[in-house]
Design a protein around this nucleic acid. Structure first.
Length: 408
RNA sequence: CGGGGUGUGGCGCAGUUGGUAGCGCGUCUGGUUUGGGACCAGAAGGCCGCAGGUUCGAACCCUGUCACCCCGACCA
């Protein structure tokens, strides 16, 4: 990608209102643009990161045997009346032309349960898991912290359906591992812990995946031995590590980057979703749900991987791996840089080329640091005299020269 | 939803006791620069969030309203 053709610009300043690191760097770097509180536009750089995060999640969910679908954002009021959730205060409500009431889905149990019910009748159809990656709408009393807590946000939600509790439990335990695979690939694995949290109405506990970070909204108590935590909301009933019994838990702040629940039969019973077992008897369907927020994960990555100059994207989610910066005014430099760029593209590399811009070297370097691609390649008269480019990793301070022939 | 704060060119901000709006960044033109956010000269760009009110006169005072940020509450 030529930087000169990229929609979106970097900026030196951002509104003093934006206190969160993720909002500041993502807005300044031209990744996102705020439309209103908790609602953001994703510009090409930001969309690229979001898409890469989604694709990692998509791959892992598919590998785990789940089917990807896409459900609507809009749902009729009736479905929520069926489950008694039609008076949730976070619902965005709207109306159809004849006055029919619709909600923008804050989550999709009310959609997925009757949907799957239309196709599943027998124990032979179970277990089954479907997922989608879609935007959710929640009329939060207070949107905050950039893209960490929005009113419209991107979410992967997976729903599993089982003939019995054992099947649900097995799938649930497997998903814990799958989730950590996702966080490992995103670069968040080392600082993310499994946290026991309130189970809502369905089971004693749910499990959250919390990335340890000072700006996190949640207070958790972590057992350093097990990499396991307990959310403050249940610490009065669970005062020790649920795995090893350790009572020496350390208080930390976490960003909730995932949450999994055993829904059991709450929704299947509400919709009358039953299946016939091997003896021809009706049985309630057991359900689980599993969420990861790609947009929140993106914000979390910025909170975790940044320095005072900008973002340090992990390679797996960086919009491009390489950032070529051409310096100087000689046409030959730009011609040579362009050739390097073309050859790298041809070899399949992801490259952002800061081609001719009438700004000083400092501006280009500052932009490169802000955007935060993993590897910076400087092409100038000096480097070309040695048939080289200067190569520097974003997370290192030392640069070195590399022969262009070796690079390609 | 409670508390606190803020709304002024695209962005960041200033604006005194009420007298008809200014600075920086960015943008455009020309020129000089070019390895860590250059410089000179010129230019464009504002219903001062919105609606009422007070006043000869309102960015400024009063009332209402909307939006945004922070703290808290909330959070499948």
């Amino acid at each position: 990608m030529l930087y000169s053709k990229l929609f979106g610009k970097t900026s030196k300043a951002v509104s003093a209102d934006e206190e969160s690191i993720n909002a500041q760097f993502l807005i300044r770097g031209g990744f996102i643009n705020k439309q209103m509180a908790g609602v953001y536009n994703y510009l090409p750089l930001g969309l690229s990161v979001l898409t890469k995060i989604q694709n990692i999640i998509r791959e892992e969910m598919t590998t785990a045997g789940a089917n990807e679908i896409l459900m609507p954002a809009l749902t009729q009021e009736e479905s929520y009346k069926t489950t008694g959730r039609d008076n949730m205060d976070i619902l965005f409500r709207t109306e159809g032309p004849s006055g029919a009431k619709y909600f923008l889905n804050p989550t999709h149990e009310e959609v997925v349960t009757p949907l799957v019910q239309k196709y599943v009748f027998s124990y032979q159809d179970l277990p089954l898991a479907v997922f989608q990656i879609q935007n959710k709408y929640r009329n939060e009393a207070r949107a905050k912290s950039g893209i960490l807590r929005g009113r419209e946000f991107n979410m992967k939600d997976l729903y599993s359906f089982h003939a019995n509790e054992e099947s649900l439990n097995g799938y649930y335990e497997m998903m814990k591992k799958v989730y950590f695979k996702v966080y490992d690939r995103l670069g968040l694995g080392a600082m993310t812990v499994l946290v026991y949290a309130s189970g809502g109405a369905f089971s004693r506990y749910s499990h959250e995946f919390q990335t340890i970070c000072d700006v996190g909204e949640d207070t958790i108590f972590v057992c350093d031995k097990c990499h396991i935590g307990v959310n403050k909301e249940i610490i009065s009933e669970q005062t020790s590590c649920p795995e090893c019994g350790n009572v020496d838990l350390v208080e930390k702040k976490g960003i909730e980057v995932g949450n999994i629940f055993k829904l059991r039969t709450k929704f299947s019973e509400a919709f009358g979703f039953k299946y016939l077992d091997g003896e021809g008897k009706e049985q309630p369907v057991e359900m689980g749900c599993y969420g990861i927020g790609p947009s929140r994960s993106m914000g979390t990555l910025v909170e975790v991987f940044h320095d005072d100059k900008g973002i340090l994207w992990p390679e797996a989610v960086a919009p491009f791996k390489y950032h070529i910066v051409a310096l100087g005014k000689e046409d030959e430099t730009y011609t040579a840089a362009h050739e390097i760029y073309q050859k790298m593209i041809a070899s399949g590399a992801e490259v952002l080329f800061d081609d001719r811009r009438d700004v000083t070297a400092g501006v280009k370097f500052a932009d490169a640091d802000l955007i935060g691609l993993p590897v910076r390649l400087v092409v100038s008269k000096k480097t070309l005299e040695k048939q080289s480019v200067e190569i520097k990793k974003r997370n290192e301070t030392e640069s070195s020269l590399m022969l262009i022939s070796d690079l390609i």
